[in-house]
Design a protein around this nucleic acid. Structure first.
Lengths: 330, 330
DNA sequence: TTGTACGCGTTATCAA
DNA sequence: TTGATAACGCGTACAA
């Protein structure tokens, strides 16, 4: 590989002059700059970013931890949106990003995770959909060795921010709309996400408020964001209720198909607004959120943390709507 | 950050000794090794991989170029499988990987692409679904500056291998099966992928063979792997044919839904075997391929190229089947 | 304006 | 068995 020394020799100047000619053009005379550029051209010289990182005092490298399990089969669409946004932002901020899948960490100790990240000089993280199961990632957050933004999790400290839609409000709105669109809703089945999660609890609170406002009978089951579990819950309890509200579109699809197989037709509501819903051609209310925007904002917030701001809780907008096939494929 | 120098001081030895104690344990006495390990423990020392790369003669870094456009909305599922497999393999081979989206290169010149890759000391690439549009990536292949494995493209040279299913055979089989499952098929609409692509040409050849064998009337249109185009083609020509064979599942879904909207029911066939098909609950023959395995094999082949083998063409297995919702969600 | 010398964190060579 | 030193490729303070 051709290095800065080769360029210096070829141009007949010192390597520091080459460096200046390339990075601080104003510190070098026009003619030496041209000599240097000519040599760069002829040799096909490309600066080694690894060496630059090593030489510079402070370099920010962002680790992106994407969740592809989450007990469901089809969040690929969401993860891809997250990654694309983060990649675009990394270009904007001139920061390097490294991609990880959360499953990589499943069989690693806290020590191993810590070592893996630090060996790559990663000093900040964006963690998407942190699942409760991975205690070691929680420890990473608690230890405060990294600047972190959590997407769709709820936790804050001096170096950690989080970002999400207002889950309480969104769940309230989509459920309320679905209730009002239909007549005589008395008994509601709520298929929640994971048990004990902060976000799931917020949503359940919304459902309980609605329970009082509409004098509903409310049955709560946990589907763990898994379409198969949602299907089984629906097969078991679906016939006794007037409506099914789900904590994710995936579970809503599971519930709808289960109802169809049972020969029943009942209102259903989902959450997320993923395109997959459009492909399924099922028609239910859902909470649509902009995953790309959420990830972009997460990146902005991370840069803000690096600049010294304290961890905070950020809310992004949502919209209650239906996902249509013909809109999706445009 | 704590460096090897800090460890050396703490342990009371030279840093070269620390390096040996950690990497070539046998070259160091047991007691100094223990001293070093104790210091490492106490200080929480983690070696800096950037510095290691700089210091070592030869380091392999693999760039993964994933295609998220491809004129279609929903190949996220496939890309995720590719990435997961490559990440797993990178662990196995102890090689670093860097992820790119092909769209990043859209507005870059060949020179810029080359610089971006080389600045990160990337010396080999896996390119998934290289689209004809990006001439600059083609140039990257032709220049032979990188060891490359192409997934689902057809090109070979001294440093480039490619891997795919046997597109001719697969297309032949799935179309033949669909023809034989139905009676009096005379006129067939083939919605191909991109015009001029090698793989599309192979598949069209298969269709032409079938045309002669079954004395079919064959109408070929290009849907560019886009479900909307497939829909429009079907709306225009669907009523005049007995069967529609598509170059991708996505286009098959577009065709099926178009037929449904036209109030017609005709046999359709797809290609890829993606899970999305199961979620759509449409029931058509398709070619199922193992994306994870394909990507794993691509990585193996890349390592083989690095070890000195010549570029070759690798075929992986496929299976003609139908994708069922209940199988998908298990 | 240009060049010398040092530091970044690590491995490798060679002498002690 | 250990340690001093050079080298990897680059940026930069400082001296010329």
């Amino acid at each position: 590989m051709v290095s800065i020394n080769d360029v210096a020799k070829r141009a007949g100047v010192a390597k520091s002059t080459v460096s200046k000619a390339l990075n601080n053009k104003e510190l070098v005379s026009k003619e030496t700059r041209l000599k240097v550029e000519k040599a760069v051209e002829e040799l096909g010289y490309v600066p080694n970013k690894l060496a630059v990182s090593l030489s510079k005092k402070k370099i920010n490298r962002v680790g992106l931890i994407v969740d592809i399990r989450h007990n469901s089969q089809f969040v690929d669409e969401i993860s891809m949106q997250y990654l694309m946004a983060a990649f675009d932002k990394s270009k904007e901020y001139q920061v390097e990003v490294v991609t990880f899948f959360s499953s990589q960490f499943d069989d690693m100790s806290y020590y191993e995770i810590n070592t893996l990240l630090k060996s790559q000089r990663i000093n900040c993280l964006i963690i998407y959909h942190l699942s409760i199961e991975n205690q070691n990632l929680y420890k990473v957050i608690e230890e405060k060795d990294f600047y972190i933004v959590l997407v769709d999790s709820y936790m804050i400290n001096g170096k950690t921010s989080c970002i999400a839609v207002n889950h309480y409000k969104a769940q309230y709105e989509v459920a309320k709309k679905t209730i009002e669109e239909n007549e005589k809703i008395n008994k509601v089945l709520y298929i929640a996400g994971g048990e004990g999660g902060h976000i799931t609890n917020e949503r359940i609170t919304a459902m309980k408020i609605l329970q009082h406002e509409y004098k509903l009978e409310l049955l709560i089951k946990h589907g763990d964001f898994n379409e198969l579990k949602a299907r089984e819950i629906t097969l078991e309890f679906g016939k006794d209720v007037d409506m099914i509200i789900c904590g994710s579109d995936l579970m809503a699809i599971g519930a709808e198909y289960a109802l169809r197989d049972m020969g029943i037709n009942k209102p259903v509501a989902g959450f997320d607004g993923i395109k997959l819903t459009g492909y399924s051609q099922l028609d239910f209310n859902t909470v649509k959120q902009d995953f790309y925007l959420k990830s972009s904002s997460a990146f902005d917030e991370l840069m803000s943390l690096l600049a010294g701001s304290k961890g905070k809780h950020i809310i992004i907008d949502h919209e209650v709507c239906r996902i249509k096939y013909l809109d999706i494929i445009q």
